[in-house]
């Protein structure tokens, strides 16, 4: 049968759900081994964080999409958590191979890393379901439906109070970690990346400015480029 936008969307959703059926809603044995290898076991903090973020996500999703869609929010979050575990495991395997270490205590106890990774997983889930597009983008098929456009990127950053600059850090590793991501998903993440690089990371409250200041004070003084260049 001919490909239609709806058929394409259904295929993407089926593919995502199919890929995640085998990934459990709990950390796998391999992931648990990484947690146990840490100097400080991150498991309890991670689970508590997930509960807090689930409440935040469900509440804000309900406000944006409507109270009758609360169950949808819970389903999206559950799928996002499966993807979060799957990608985390792939990232750690790749880091173990690259660095020849098995103790990722610092990374796995970094709340910003977990929040960014989960936000990216949820962005992928919502983009697949067509709920997150871009208000100014050219491919928002839900344009005109304010309920759906309310959860478009960077909505997730506001929900988790996450700096765009920190979300940006996980995008490339996320794409590398999952070669089964659809082309549309990769394209969506790339558009998020470009939006951050071109606009969101440069807003006044961005942590980027403090980092640039620290870099400058740390001795890495370079000639400031002229406005023309």
């Amino acid at each position: 049968p001919p490909q239609t936008p709806i058929r394409a969307a259904m295929t993407s959703i089926q593919q995502l759900r199919g890929d995640l059926i085998s990934s459990g809603d709990q950390p796998s044995t391999t992931l648990n081994t990484y947690f146990k290898n840490c100097t400080v076991d991150p498991t309890q903090n991670m689970l508590t964080r997930l509960e807090t973020l689930e409440q935040l996500f469900s509440q804000r999703f309900g406000q944006a999409v409507g109270p009758r869609c609360l169950i949808l929010g819970k389903q999206r979050f559950a799928l996002g958590v499966r993807l979060y575990y799957k990608i985390m495991e792939a990232m750690l395997k790749s880091e173990e191979k690259r660095l020849s270490v098995q103790n990722f205590s610092k990374l796995l106890n970094d709340a910003t890393f977990h929040t960014s990774l989960l936000a990216c997983a949820l962005e992928v889930v919502m983009a697949t379901y067509g709920e997150s597009s871009f208000k100014t983008g050219g491919y928002n098929h839900a344009a005109g439906d304010s309920a759906e456009t309310d959860v478009c990127f960077p909505w997730i950053l506001h929900v988790f109070n996450l700096a765009a600059f920190d979300f940006y850090k996980v995008i490339e590793s996320f794409i590398k970690a999952d070669p089964t991501l659809s082309k549309d998903t990769v394209k969506h993440l790339e558009t998020c990346e470009n939006l951050i690089m071109e606009r969101i990371a440069w807003r006044t409250d961005s942590p980027l400015f403090e980092l640039l200041k620290q870099e400058h004070e740390g001795g890495a003084v370079e000639q400031v480029e002229t406005p023309a260049s």
Binding site: E95, L99, L107, V170, E172, K183
Partner: peptide
Amino acid sequence: NHNYHFGLEDHEGISELFDCD
């Protein structure tokens, strides 16, 4: 034919990006 442009060098990964090394 959409291909993501990978910008990270081979010696960079998520650990470095979150200042873990």
